[in-house]
Structures are given as structure tokens and as C-alpha cells.
Simulated assay, not measured.
Amino acid sequence: MSIAGKLGVAGAAEEAHLLGLSAIQIFAKSPRSWKTRSLKAGEVEGFRARKENLGGLPTVIHASYLVNLAAEGELWEKSVFSLADDLAKAQMLGIEYVVVHPGSGPAEKARIGALKARELAGLGRNGPWLLLENTAGGGEKLGANLHTLAELVEGTSLGVCFDTCHAFAAGYNLAEALEALEQTVGLQRVPVIHLNDSVGERGSQIDHHANLMEGKIGEELMDFVLDPRLKDKIFIMETPRGTLEDAHNLRILRGWLGLT
């Protein structure tokens, strides 16, 4: 959901209501800039009120695409600060989850960066849950291998966000990926699913999302969504936006769930 407009974050909750959604994801600032965004007067109260009126409306903040928690020097410092800013905003807004790509470089550096961002945001045990997202792979990008992702969060308060397009592009069959998640990370640490079809073929390492049933994953997605182990998870579609696209994707998903 977009936070553009005079209502800001509260406007995203308003749009969710109009679309009949039960969960949303937002960017708390531009995803392709280091510039932070201050919350406007009344924005926090407006969002919290709408969220409550919509039955809680579980919400996810997606961190900036520029963040690289495994980087060195100034880039690492900027990344940690940017992520800490998102976590602090989530805390103020009563948002439950913040999702971030681990980055490219040493796994231990990414793990330290994630934990440092939580510390800078001043989060306690009851603060928003920071989730590391699996990736499509390529180069030194972390998170394409689910075993590596499990090692990143092991022994920490961090969780995992699982993206279907990224897993497919990394070479996984979704049924096999779910088994791997359960055996390595543990599904109790995977509260959020990004439900996306893939423009690229399996194993292509192409991070390009498609509308449901219009990409290369197809029926595999439906079987994944209907797996009973995922019935309590929060599903977020990062599919192309637009009136027709939204209607198509919601119709497909609601049809799978028997809600139409």
C-alpha cells in the first residue's frame, strides 16, 4: 500500500479497507533513497485508530532496497541506521513486522547489522519483529539458501519472511522449500509470506514478480497457499499494482481460499 497523500500511513489503512484486505505492507520512506521521512502530525494516531477499527490489520514495513547489512564501512552504517529508523517507526505506529533483505557479503556481518539496528531502535522483547527475507540469489547475496538463512537467525530474536518468487528463482520447488523451512528455520519463526508469481524460470535468479497464475510458478502456488501448516500466516502480495492487477490477484487468491 502507498503512504503518499495527506493521510500518509493512515491512508494505506484506508485503502486496505476499501479493498477488503486483512493485512498490508508499506514502505515507511522511499525504498530507493537514504532520506528518512518524518511522521506527520496526527499520522500515528490516525493509523493506529484505523488499524484497530479494521480488527488489528497486521502490518509489515519493508526496509529500503538500498540496505546491505553485510556491507563494510559507510554503507553498513547507513544500512543499520536506515533499518533502525524503520524499526523505530514500526514501534511508534504499532506495526508488528519489519522485513529486510540480508544483503551481500559475510553472513556474520549481516547478522550483527540486524541486531545492531534493533539495539539502535531501542526495541524491547515486545517490539516489532525483524524478519530476514530469502532472496533469489546471485553474486554474494545472502538468503537464497534456506539453510544459510536459518543460520543467520539461529540463537537470535530474528525471524524470517519467505518469498515464493525468490525461492522459485533460487531453484526451489515450493513444497520442498516449505519442508526445508520447517526443518531448518522452524515455521513458528516464519510469520509472513510474500506471495508472488515469478517472471523468471525456476533457478533463474531473476527477482521479478508476476501476477498470480501469470508467471512461471503457476499451480504450485495454489498448493503452497492451501498447505494447512500455513493457515495462520500473514500473506502479502507484492504483485504489480493497478486497479485491474489488484482485482485479478485478489480474485485468484480469494478463489483458492473459497472466499468468492
Rank of each mutant, 00 (worst) to 15 (best):
P106K: 15
H248I: 09
A175Y: 02
S38Y: 11
T260P: 04
V192C: 02
I217M: 01
K109H: 13
A71Y: 07
H208S: 14
E214N: 08
P128M: 04
S79Q: 08
A121T: 06
F27C: 03
L250E: 03
T135Q: 00
H147P: 00
K116M: 15
E74W: 09
R50Y: 11
V190F: 08
Q25C: 12
A180R: 05
G242I: 02
L142V: 12
S79P: 10
L187E: 02
R37G: 05
I26E: 05
N173W: 14
M213A: 12
P228G: 05
G73W: 08
E43R: 03
A180G: 01
K6A: 14
P102G: 06
E214P: 01
I236V: 09
L257I: 06
N173M: 12
H248S: 07
R254A: 05
N196D: 09
I252C: 00
C165G: 11
P102R: 08
L149N: 05
M1S: 12
V160Q: 01
V160F: 02
L93P: 09
E151F: 00
L115A: 05
S104T: 09
A70W: 07
G42L: 01
G124V: 11
I24P: 07
Q183W: 03
G242N: 05
V153F: 01
K89I: 12
A12V: 01
E151R: 03
Y65A: 03
L244M: 09
I61F: 08
G103C: 02
E182P: 00
L257C: 06
I252L: 00
P228D: 10
W34Q: 08
A180F: 04
D197Q: 08
R111G: 00
L226E: 13
Q205T: 14
G200H: 13
H248Q: 12
E245R: 11
L195Y: 15
E96T: 09
G11T: 11
R118V: 15
T59M: 00
A167I: 07
I234R: 13
N134M: 03
L142N: 12
L115E: 13
A41D: 14
G73V: 07
D232W: 08
G113E: 09
A170W: 03
T184E: 05
V98F: 01
G218H: 10
S198C: 02
M222E: 15
L152Q: 10
D227I: 07
A117R: 05
W76Y: 15
M92K: 15
Q25F: 06
E154P: 00
P191E: 06
A88V: 09
G122V: 07
H62D: 04
G113C: 07
E96S: 14
L123I: 08
A150F: 09
H62G: 04
T164G: 03
E15D: 14
L130Q: 06
K231P: 11
Q91N: 13
A167V: 10
A110D: 05
I3C: 03
V192K: 05
L131R: 13
G255F: 14
L83S: 08
G258T: 13
I206T: 13
G113S: 10
L259G: 07
